[in-house]
């Protein structure tokens, strides 16, 4: 049902579908032949063509992550897998792959546990595809004003419109809450470390105290920028300033 809804909302008529399909198939063949450089090149080409028409693809990001992993480029693999996870946060393959990848990184960063209620709520809004949430939000928003318009017209019996308005408002608020939580997750400023070792300082200057070092492939949150430095925060709460060029942001 969920897949069906996604397909319904997905606009698959943009761009030249056959070209992207051909690139995708060729990249898959290159991957099977262990020619990971070629696979990455073809997948990236397909991804940039999609991106030009404002489209996104989970499959392309996921496959790019797999090919980068095979090339031992763990930082790029992390970046692509995280981008894929943003599209489908509960996909078992991408979560499994990220776990394998994390086990091979030099930095073991503890993620604080999430409460049961928060986890259940997270699971709820992550299980509904974002296009479905935004589409539903639009529909319920329209319904509210359709019922309002009918009530204003005063032509028909008001009772069913009052009920309709109430139900639409409740559904609108619920969908808004879920969509807002998911949008917040998507807008989260996160980045992956792309240098073998990055020094993190207490202030945006290399002359300040060195707090800790993080290594290639680590995932960090970004909070602010100043004079070529970015304020990073790790999932366990450690934070500091590091040079901006050491990171690539997740979009």
């Amino acid at each position: 049902m969920r897949k069906w809804l996604v397909i319904l909302l997905c606009l698959t008529t943009f761009g030249s579908a056959s070209d992207i399909g051909a690139l995708y198939r060729k990249a898959g063949e290159a991957y099977a032949a262990k020619d990971y450089d070629k696979a990455i090149e073809l997948y990236s080409q397909a991804a940039s063509e999609l991106s030009a028409s404002g489209e996104k693809s989970f499959d392309l990001m996921y496959n790019l992550g797999c090919a980068s992993f095979r090339k031992e480029d763990l930082a790029s693999a992390r970046l692509y897998f995280e981008q894929a996870r943003r599209i489908r946060p509960l996909d078992p393959s991408v979560n499994r792959n990220l776990k394998v990848l994390e086990s091979r990184l030099s930095d073991k960063i503890k993620v604080p546990p999430v409460g049961t209620v928060e986890k259940a709520y997270q699971h709820l809004y992550q299980s509904i595809p974002y296009p479905v949430l935004t589409g539903s939000l639009l529909i319920f928003w329209f319904l509210v004003f359709i019922f309002l318009g009918l009530l204003i017209s005063g032509r028909y019996s008001r009772k069913p419109f009052y009920y309709g308005l109430g139900v639409s408002l409740i559904l609108l608020l619920m969908t808004f809450g879920l969509a807002n939580s998911r949008a917040g997750e998507l807008a989260r400023r996160e980045a992956v470390v792309f240098q073998p070792e990055v020094e993190v300082f207490s202030e945006p200057s290399t002359s300040s105290s060195l707090l800790f070092r993080i290594h290639s492939g680590a995932l960090v949150g970004m909070e602010g920028e100043q004079s070529g430095f970015v304020h990073i925060i790790l999932p366990d709460g450690m934070n500091g300033w590091a040079r901006k060029q050491s990171f690539k942001a997740i979009h």
Partner: peptide, 20 residues
Amino acid sequence: NDIDYIRTGDTPDRFVDISE
């Protein structure tokens, strides 16, 4: 311990984020 295999098929999934 290894990663899962890539997604195969004729075309990749694609969607437009209408909210953007």
